[in-house]
Computed example of a mutant assay.
Amino acid sequence: MKVAIFASGNGTNFEILAKKFANNEIMGQIGLLFCDHPDAHVIARAQKYHIPVKTFTVKECGGKRLYEEKIMKLLQKFQIDFIILAGYLRVIGPTILANYDGRIVNLHPAFLPEYPGLHSIERAFADKRQQTGVTVHFVDAGLDSGPIIAQEHVPILATDSLETLEQRVHECEHRLYPQVIKELLPQFNQKEHNNQ
């Protein structure tokens, strides 16, 4: 089972996953990090684990369709079975969805369907909600609208600043996402085996 991780930024979730794959706590192998920001810190994290890195932008490719086609060629070249989004800030388009239907998962820092899209933690905090959360879901053509795999609430305390809330949401992400991936990949592998 070879997975690709897509990321755009700092890569804290990426590194936690990479460590667990490296220690055989999660079945499979990270075959590729794809990053759409050539200067993102996640690239250095991947290099530390000797994970192949590919990075390019939509602009370099001349548009979204060509960008996705180039990603697809990468996924085929590296023989990727499953895609994990870890802070990837672009919507997955129809080319990749058609080829990886039911094989792409995302981590979202809100209790979906609340606060889909960007700046979810900030929006929940600004709305003075009593709680927000973390969601792991399959990716479909909508915005954070795919089938939910797991969710946890994160309380918003009266004493919270945005920074302390973000820290607790990220702590929840760092625990929940690897746990879900660890349980999900063997199920997917067994399903693939049964279909052969």
Rank of each mutant, 00 (worst) to 15 (best):
P178W: 04
D39S: 14
A44D: 14
I83Q: 01
S8W: 06
P178L: 02
P147S: 05
I96H: 05
G93W: 10
P116H: 02
V3E: 04
C35L: 10
V91A: 14
S145T: 02
Q130W: 06
I30G: 06
V136Q: 03
L162R: 12
G62I: 04
H108Y: 12
Y115K: 11
K73F: 15
I83T: 00
L157T: 07
V58L: 11
G62P: 01
T57Y: 02
P147K: 08
A44I: 12
R175M: 04
S120T: 00
R168N: 08
M72Q: 10
I84N: 03
H193G: 15
F138Q: 11
G31L: 06
L66I: 05
K54R: 15
T95S: 07
S120P: 04
Q47Y: 09
V53W: 11
D39A: 15
V154Q: 06
Y67D: 00
P178N: 13
L85I: 07
E69R: 10
Y67R: 13
E152W: 05
F111M: 15
E114T: 14
R123N: 10
F78Y: 15
G9R: 04
I80Y: 09
T135Q: 10
L176A: 04
N99K: 09
Q130F: 14
E68Y: 09
F21M: 02
T135P: 01
Q167K: 14
L185R: 02
K64D: 01
T132V: 03
L17V: 11
Q196N: 12
F56M: 07
F14M: 14
I156T: 07
Q47F: 04
C35G: 06
F111Y: 15
C172H: 14
L143Q: 13
D127V: 09
D36A: 08
V42Q: 06
I26P: 01
C61P: 01
Q131D: 00
M27H: 12
N99T: 00
I121T: 00
A44C: 08
V91M: 11
H108E: 11
Y67W: 06
A22D: 02
F111T: 02
V42Y: 03
K19Y: 02
I84H: 04
K54Q: 12
H193R: 09
Y88Q: 03
I71M: 02
T164S: 12
N195F: 13
C172E: 09
L118P: 04
G142C: 10
G11Y: 03
G9H: 13
P109F: 13
Y100R: 09
I84S: 06
I71R: 12
T55Q: 03
N23H: 07
M1S: 07
Y49Q: 01
A141L: 06
I156M: 11
E122R: 15
I80L: 11
I71D: 00
G146H: 12
H137M: 10
E114I: 01
E69C: 03
P94K: 09
P178V: 00
Q187K: 15
R90L: 06
N23Y: 11
F111H: 11
V53E: 11
